[in-house]
Design a protein around this nucleic acid. Structure first.
Length: 642
RNA sequence: GGCUUCGUAGCUCAACUGGUCAGAGCGAGCGGCUCAUAACCGCUAGGUUCAGGGUUCAAGUCCCUGCGAAGCCA
């Protein structure tokens, strides 16, 4: 019987549209699901939406619709995005579905029967915006840490005896170090549990939009008992056949922000209900954008749907899983994305296909040859294959996607090297037909293997590659890549257009003379997204935050690493020289900058720009033609502008 | 404040339990090839492994201190 594999994403809260974080978790889960399917395992991949809670109730009210309607709309947006990103889930659960509500009630009753639920009262500073209580010392200036309003609330509430399960959980953790990954998170959780656990409130009476507590419908089940249960309810509950098969194999993929709920609360709920904890979980990190935290107020939020549309879903998938160690935070930038596309996908991967099939077409009418004569170059290729395979299997086992992809690309490079070393064009010229047959076959086999291995990451392009090879279904799974040479001879191949066309360089135009209207790096998002806030007026206080002053340019030179930037030394009247990078190289020469009086935004957070720390920003106007701002008369450096 | 982790070539990162000249990718320079998407292949880049001290026959890899960054403390 085939092994089983159960992978989940969190259910996403329908208070906001999907963002890159949701996409990241889901993509990773999808890659894992596809990989395990390719291994021949029985896979169940679950995602869904979390639809209860006060926030949803209020948002719906504001929109003048029912909470369920609101949830349905937003939930649909998640499914739309998953379609765009080629996510192949087996099940999509919504917490408003009867199948879920029934299991939550069941779980509650089991915990109740175990004597782990009691009635008490909850009091504390409650924030609707965060949907959470805060302790006195967590408040910042009388608001929640995220800046939301809070109110002192006392309400009756059912509590779960989490304290009772601390020792058992600790035992479980110690026995299974792989229960929480990566290791740093595991350590955090262990330490947390070691400190002792307090009982937690698991019901609310202050809103209605939730699953009623069995026999006490004036309470609704509080968020975590409701949400976490989805992993079991989607399988049909503790008595269902799906549960039997998949629950022992459950792997939860989550963001690091919800680790505690998964690693502490959830196993304890399950223990109380007499059920085993999941097999393991993996908490990944966050994406920043061009070095900054993504947030709506910065306007630098990446829209995964738009990215996938602009660059292709496969490409976007590849980038997110290749660029960064799964588990650590990563930085998203379009420049990095384009580098990956051109370097890895176009030059290495796509081009290997293109050149190989091109030669096959030219020398053998596109038919995969059989037989041939072995040569000295073959060994290196086989060695690379074996090494890649070993690393890949191990990396996928550890959910180290970046290493898995790096291993695959080692083979891609070996393929390109093989072409170079064997020089098929020379063989053709010399009439070394036997050897040429072998070389062409080996290239096709390399492509086939690489194609299979990349299916989890590049589902469309890799399938396209295999189609062009004419590879039959039985050589498109991982077991068929266990040994070299499974690609049958005689297949008719098709060259086709480049799989990944190269993108034009963004910033690689020849220096100067070139009039590039773009300034260094505006947050790329001009296509759409006029945010609601960007018109309107501001208060004087907002303006007063800007430290604008007169400054004098002391020295100027070209930025060593960026054609469009000048690196300036500036006297801003604060008794030191500061370095500022300005995107004006196309409009001003270094010579004409020296001695110039300019207007400087002096309290802009310092930032490294292409390796040079820039402390401030020169004000300028224009796009095609750019002119620096200055002051009309002569004023000393440091003069405040107000 | 307490606990934990991290600080390696211009950039992004490797280096299992301490042990052959600290490695790879990208970028840069030079050379080669021409089947291919101005793609590919090779060579080079000589980095006080944050700083200082210690343990050891031997430390990037262990200990202490300092500086810097990050995470957790319901």
């Amino acid at each position: 019987m085939a092994a089983s594999y159960y992978v989940t994403t969190p259910i996403y809260y329908v208070n906001a549209d999907p963002h890159i974080g949701h996409a990241y978790t889901t993509l990773a889960a999808d890659a894992l699901a596809r990989w395990h399917r390719l291994l021949g395992e029985d896979v169940y991949f679950l995602t869904g939406t979390d639809e209860h809670g006060k926030k949803i109730e209020e948002a719906a009210q504001k929109a003048g619709i029912s909470p369920l309607e609101h949830a349905t709309r937003v939930s649909a947006r998640f499914r739309e995005l998953w379609q765009v990103l080629d996510i192949e889930y087996d099940d999509f659960i919504r917490t408003t579905e009867p199948r879920h509500e029934a299991v939550v009630a069941d779980l509650w009753q089991r915990m109740m029967a175990a004597g782990d639920i009691y009635l008490g009262k909850y009091e504390g500073w409650y924030s609707v915006g965060d949907e959470a209580y805060f302790t006195e010392d967590e408040l910042v200036d009388g608001r929640s840490p995220t800046g939301h309003e809070v109110a002192w609330v006392v309400e009756p509430s059912y509590f779960f005896r989490l304290s009772k399960y601390g020792p058992r959980l600790l035992e479980h953790l110690r026995a299974r170090p792989g229960f929480v990954r990566p290791e740093s998170r595991y350590n955090e959780i262990v330490r947390f549990v070691e400190q002792g656990l307090q009982d937690i409130s698991i019901s609310r009476t202050t809103f209605k939009w939730g699953i009623p507590v069995p026999e006490h419908p004036d309470h609704v089940v509080y968020v975590w008992v409701d949400a976490l249960t989805n992993y079991v309810s989607a399988l049909g509950g503790p008595d269902a056949p799906l549960y039997e098969q998949f629950w022992p194999e459950a792997v939860h993929l989550i963001g690091k922000d919800i680790l505690r709920f998964h690693a502490v609360f959830w196993p304890c709920f399950l223990m109380s209900a007499g059920l085993p904890p999941p097999k393991s979980m993996f908490a990944h990190g966050w994406w920043t954008h061009a070095g900054r935290k993504m947030s709506k107020t910065f306007g630098n939020v990446i829209d995964p749907g738009a990215m996938a549309q602009q660059y292709g879903a496969d490409t976007f998938r590849y980038f997110l899983l290749r660029e960064v160690t799964f588990g650590l935070d990563g930085d998203f930038s379009e420049a990095a994305l384009r580098d990956r596309i051109n370097g890895d996908l176009a030059n290495d991967y796509g081009n290997l296909l293109n050149r190989s099939l091109g030669m096959l077409q030219k020398y053998r009418d596109g038919v995969v040859p059989s037989g041939g004569a072995a040569g000295p170059e073959d060994e290196a290729l086989r060695t690379a294959f074996a090494a890649s395979r070993e690393t890949l299997l191990k990396a996928m086992d550890e959910m180290a996607f970046h290493r898995a992809l790096a291993a695959i690309w080692d083979l891609v490079r070996a393929g390109n090297k093989y072409v170079d070393a064997t020089a098929p064009w020379a063989l053709a010229k010399q009439g070394a037909a036997e050897r040429l047959d072998a070389v062409l076959y080996n290239l096709c086999e390399t492509l086939r293997i690489v194609g299979v291995w990349t299916l989890p990451f590049l589902p469309r392009k890799a399938a396209d590659l295999l189609d062009r090879l004419g590879a039959p279904a039985d050589v498109r799974d991982v077991p068929s890549t266990a040994a070299w040479g499974r690609l049958p001879a005689g297949l008719q191949t098709t060259v086709g257009d480049p799989l990944f066309p190269r993108l034009e360089a963004l910033a690689k135009a020849p220096p100067e003379t070139e009039k590039k209207p773009e300034t260094p790096k505006p947050m790329p998002a001009p296509e759409k997204k006029p945010t609601v806030t960007d018109t309107t007026t501001i208060q004087y206080d907002d303006f007063a935050k800007l430290d604008l002053r007169v400054a004098k340019v002391l020295t100027a030179e070209k930025h060593p690493d960026a054609d469009r930037l000048l690196k300036l030394t500036i006297d801003a009247g604060d008794g030191r020289e500061r370095t500022v990078c300005a995107g004006i190289a196309a409009h001003y020469t270094p010579q004409e900058m020296v001695g110039r009086t300019v207007v400087l935004l002096a309290n802009l957070a310092p930032r490294k720009i292409r390796g040079v720390m820039s402390e401030g920003m020169l004000l300028a106007a224009g796009a095609e033609t750019v002119k620096l701002l200055s002051v009309a008369g002569d004023l000393p450096p440091g003069t405040k502008i107000s």
